[in-house]
């Protein structure tokens, strides 16, 4: 008796799973995209608190250097351009993914990662020269807030680069299957989100700082 029940269950199971899969099919990766979006929104709140801290402390120089004395806008403009270009190269990777072109996706991801690495490299160079000039995080509340905010963004970009590396390994091993497409969509959102945060950084930290 129990065997019949079991076999009936087994018969019922496939239809059940098929329905699930069909649902999944139409819903674009199930709840993953929405869940990742909500993570990004909570990350935005972290940056909001750091921006608020920087805003409050942005004129607390404690006798240390002012933004106008230490910020080099050409370097910031270069970094902004690099991050903006990396945004569209990631877009090209997503278009190649959509067309099912594995090679194109990998190529654009590599270019995006290299641009990201250049961004982080220039930022580290900037931090190095600031610290060399004596503008360390310990100098003033303004510099503490500056280093915290900008380095948090830089750390995010660093983890984005690591994630691109992981995806390149996954793509090389298993190609553009559904799971990898979903992961690439999440990574795409992460990368573009970092560019959105950088708009706030270059506007409110660098440009308004030099204006002040």
């Amino acid at each position: 008796m129990s065997t019949t029940a079991l076999s009936e269950d087994r018969n019922a199971d496939p239809t059940f799973y098929l329905v699930e899969e069909d649902d999944h099919h139409h819903e674009t990766g199930g709840g993953t995209i929405l869940g990742f979006w909500i993570y990004l929104m909570s990350d935005a709140l972290i940056f909001a608190t750091l921006f608020a801290t920087f805003g409050v402390l942005s004129t607390s120089y404690a006798g240390g250097p002012t933004p106008r004395e230490i910020f080099e806008l050409p370097l910031v403009a270069l970094n902004t351009a690099i991050l903006l270009v990396s945004s569209i190269t990631f877009g090209f990777a997503m278009i190649a993914m959509q067309q099912g072109k594995l090679g194109g996706t990998q190529l654009w991801l590599v270019i995006t990662a290299l641009l990201g690495a250049a961004f982080v490299g220039i930022e580290l160079f900037e931090f190095g020269s600031l610290i060399h000039e004596g503008a360390t995080p310990q100098t003033s509340a303004f510099l503490s807030a500056f280093f915290t905010l900008v380095a948090t963004h830089g750390l995010h970009v660093t983890f984005g680069i690591i994630w691109v590396g992981v995806m390149l390994v996954q793509l090389a091993q298993r190609g553009l299957h559904v799971e990898n497409q979903r992961r690439l969509m999440c990574l795409s959102m992460f990368w573009h989100f970092l560019d959105v945060v950088w708009i706030g950084v270059f506007t409110f930290v660098y440009l308004l700082g030099v204006l002040r």
Binding site: F92, G175, L176, H177, V178
Partner: peptide
Amino acid sequence: TDAAHSHGDTHGHSFTL
């Protein structure tokens, strides 16, 4: 299946050049 999925997946997201 991948091709079918990619079509369905990106349909609502419009990754256009």
